[in-house]
Amino acid sequence: MDINIVFQIAAVGILVAVLNQVLMRAGREEQAMLTTLAGLVVVLFWVIQYIDRLFTTVQTLFRL
């Protein structure tokens, strides 16, 4: 697992939080929520393959 993924996820989190605040203060709550959801979807998309690898490894280790 590449450590860069951790920094990428952190950067996306910070940027989405800032964008969320900017949009909330401009009175665009719906767009702020959509931005947060979009950031969440992108990060989940990155993380899903590692979760899959984790489950496969656990299955192999415990011979399930």
Binding site: Q8, V12, V18, L23
Partner: peptide, 17 residues
């Protein structure tokens, strides 16, 4: 103010992605 700051933030987000 909103659109220029949102534009920069979206650009940085795209670069990170």
């Amino acid at each position: 103010r909103l659109y220029s700051s949102a534009g920069v933030l979206c650009g940085i987000l795209m670069c990170v992605i």
